[in-house]
Amino acid sequence: MNQSIKSLLLCSIGFLMASGIAAAQVEKNSDLYKTLKQQDSILFDIGFNKCDIEKSAEIICDDLEFYHDKGGVTNSKEEFVKTMKNGICSNTNTTKVYRFLVEESLEVFPMYNNGELYGALQTGKHFFSTNEDMTYDKSDNYALFSHLWIIEENEWKLKRVLSYNHTSKEKSEN
């Protein structure tokens, strides 16, 4: 590759990074990372694990879209809350399932519009167990997730969810 093309390529990459167009994952000690990790905790530790569904519903957009590779599509916050109440958090559910975040897997990518932060993509891995004290190294039931968070009326709200690759570690390591 000739020198002028290399220079142009490097300048273009520098411009994209400086303008925020090619933003990378934020540092784990950043305010944005900590804020969205806290939102994850409200959604799962409080909403899913403790079944305080109303508390987690407060951080969900009314027009939530949730795409699950095993459970299909949920098209609203109302439908999501109803599914939680009638499923995992039902009084008739005799086997409680808990969700655990694989801490080191969590990543947050900011999203800007004309230089202004309007949202972020949060990705990671989580695992599930009926044992409240389960650790990832002992679990065989995990999945990947991608959450699109947006700022709505100065609050972070969950807008879109992809939950996929639900599998066991044994299957994926072979």
Rank of each mutant, 00 (worst) to 15 (best):
D137N: 15
G71Q: 11
D137Q: 15
L121K: 08
Y98C: 03
D31E: 14
E78H: 08
T94E: 07
V81L: 11
S76F: 02
G20V: 11
K169R: 15
L117Q: 15
H126V: 00
T167D: 14
L8F: 11
T167E: 09
P110D: 10
I53A: 04
E58R: 06
G124H: 06
S139F: 13
G119R: 08
S172Y: 11
E155N: 15
N29F: 00
S90D: 14
V73Y: 13
A120N: 04
L64Q: 01
L162V: 03
G124T: 08
L43P: 01
K6H: 07
N141R: 10
V73T: 15
I59Q: 09
N75W: 02
N114E: 14
F48C: 00
L144D: 06
F80S: 12
G14R: 10
I151C: 04
T35N: 13
Y118L: 07
Q3T: 11
P110K: 09
N113D: 13
G72F: 11
N165Q: 03
N93S: 08
K96N: 07
L16Y: 13
E65T: 08
S163I: 10
G87R: 05
G124M: 07
W156Q: 11
L9W: 05
A120C: 06
C89D: 15
E104R: 01
I59G: 01
D52W: 03
V108D: 07
V102K: 13
E79T: 15
F100S: 02
I59K: 13
N2H: 06
L8W: 07
S4I: 02
M17Y: 14
F44N: 10
S139K: 12
T167P: 00
E173C: 02
M84C: 08
E79S: 15
K50P: 01
